[in-house]
């Protein structure tokens, strides 16, 4: 199939690459741009492992064609830490609260939680649980993921949260 040139901004950088019109955004990111943080966990847009931030919305990157994201502003897990390597409060929170085990869902989970906290900086536990319902985790049982997001929210709001993962 003939390839077309696709341009977008990913993690603050302008990128361009060739892809088929049918290429899914997740494959474009992983294979053309070598951004292997976002993962693939299903074929039906259920698992959320492929979640990226696209023009200010959480997006399952397996549900859009790369070409549909032409010109878009995308952020993946690789773009979450600060330029000097300092981890984002969410990345820190996931480690502090033991919010991950195999790590396969984690990039999608963190990127989704990032948008959730942008939209609702002070979510309740129920709001967090609904807010991440599009992202499946097979390892953690979610309880510590909720705590990790609460940790990040507190930190971003300047309230230190001392409670360690029991």
């Amino acid at each position: 199939m003939a390839k077309i040139q696709i341009a977008m901004t990913v993690n603050g950088e302008a990128v361009e690459a060739l892809a088929e019109p049918r290429t899914l955004l997740i494959h474009f990111l992983r294979e053309q741009l070598n951004l292997t943080g976002p993962h693939i966990g299903c074929d039906t847009s259920h698992c959320g492992a492929c979640t990226v931030d696209l023009d200010g919305k959480s997006m399952k990157s397996c549900t859009v064609f790369a070409v549909q994201a032409s010109g878009a502003e995308i952020r993946t897990i690789e773009g979450m830490a600060a330029a000097d390597g300092t981890l984002h409060a969410l990345q820190e929170g996931f480690r502090e609260m033991h919010g991950l085990q195999c790590g396969f869902c984690t990039p999608g989970m963190i990127v989704r939680a990032y948008r959730l906290l942008q939209e609702n900086p002070n979510p309740t536990e129920t709001e967090i649980r609904f807010g991440i319902a599009g992202n499946l985790c097979r390892c953690t049982g979610y309880q510590n993921i909720v705590k990790a997001i609460q940790y990040a929210a507190a930190k971003l709001n300047g309230v230190p949260l001392q409670e360690a993962a029991e």
Binding site: I77, L87, F94, G103, I110
Partner: peptide, 9 residues
């Protein structure tokens, strides 16, 4: 976790 939370698994 240090690598997993950064998408570097």
């Amino acid at each position: 976790d240090v690598r997993f939370v950064q998408g570097r698994g």
